[in-house]
């Protein structure tokens, strides 16, 4: 009996390890390839451990374009978006959660619609708008359309609705202004939600390829995902070791964040759907 149970447990562990490998091994393979020389990349059957570990592949990938600019742009755009989303989202969420006002249903419906409309639907008209306003070749087409987040407003609104009314009444009796109420009562109570949303927004925009691809045609404003994708686009044979080295540079910050804050990140993304 016990032998059967041990056998079943062992089989399960083996199956689990196999599944985990399917999801994790590609990342490992990416790193191994990034460390190989080009002649070793073209060995079939493939070798596992690189004969010679070539760290300089990373330097070569980094040096094959204005990667410092791409890197700066990625961070700048993702942080600017997050800051703006919080600046616009907190008062809006507070208004939806705490005020009753004429037209609130219409405005909330507008927020709902914004939540439903994906960038893949608006990119063409928004690009034309941006060119008509003469804003192409600035950071604005990358940042402005994301300056408010419907998802952020939803999350914050829910958090603000849970703050007990008595706390706010007490603050109002103490002649606290609305901004003070937001700053000293609402935001501290909503801290976990802010962290969740911040992780979601930063990771989304750090990873984003589609929007910057459409909105930029100048290296000065391109972001890291575009630069990494261009590593491959040269005609002729692809230098897989260099491409994978670039890939490691793109993925590493996110994977490190995931190791450190796995639970928060999972919650951020799982909740982004389950509302």
């Amino acid at each position: 009996m016990s032998a059967v149970r041990w056998f079943r447990k062992g089989a399960e562990i083996l199956a689990l390890a196999g599944i985990a490998l399917m999801f994790v091994f590609p990342f490992l393979w990416m790193t191994l390839t990034a460390l190989k020389g080009m002649d070793e990349v073209h060995v079939f059957p493939p070798t596992w451990i690189p004969e010679q570990i070539l760290w300089e592949n990373f330097a070569q990938a980094w040096g094959s374009g204005p990667f410092l600019t791409y890197f700066f742009n990625s961070i700048f755009v993702a942080v600017a978006i997050l800051v703006l989303q919080i600046v616009t989202g907190v008062p809006a969420a507070y208004a939806f959660a705490r005020y009753r006002f004429r037209g609130s249903k219409v405005l909330f419906a507008l927020t709902l619609i914004a939540l439903m409309i994906p960038p893949q639907l608006t990119f063409l008209p928004v690009f034309i708008q941006m060119s008509e306003w003469d804003l192409l070749n600035t950071y604005l087409p990358l940042i402005l359309p994301y300056a408010a987040s419907a998802f952020g407003i939803f999350l914050l609104r829910q958090a603000f609705m849970q703050v007990p009314e008595e706390l706010i009444e007490a603050a109002r009796l103490d002649k606290a202004s609305e901004w003070q109420i937001i700053w000293t009562i609402m935001l501290p109570m909503a801290k976990p939600v802010l962290i969740t949303f911040g992780l979601f927004s930063f990771i989304y925009h750090w990873n984003d390829y589609f929007w910057p691809l459409v909105m930029t045609n100048n290296d000065a404003f391109r972001t890291l995902p575009l630069g990494i994708a261009m590593l491959k686009s040269s005609e002729g044979s692809i230098y897989w070791n260099i491409v994978m080295a670039g890939n490691v540079i793109l993925v590493l910050p996110i994977l490190l964040m995931f190791f450190m804050a796995q639970r928060q990140i999972i919650r951020a993304f799982v909740y982004s759907g389950v509302k």
Partner: peptide, 8 residues
Amino acid sequence: TAPSMLIF
């Protein structure tokens, strides 16, 4: 709500 609504 104005800034967010303007963006939307």
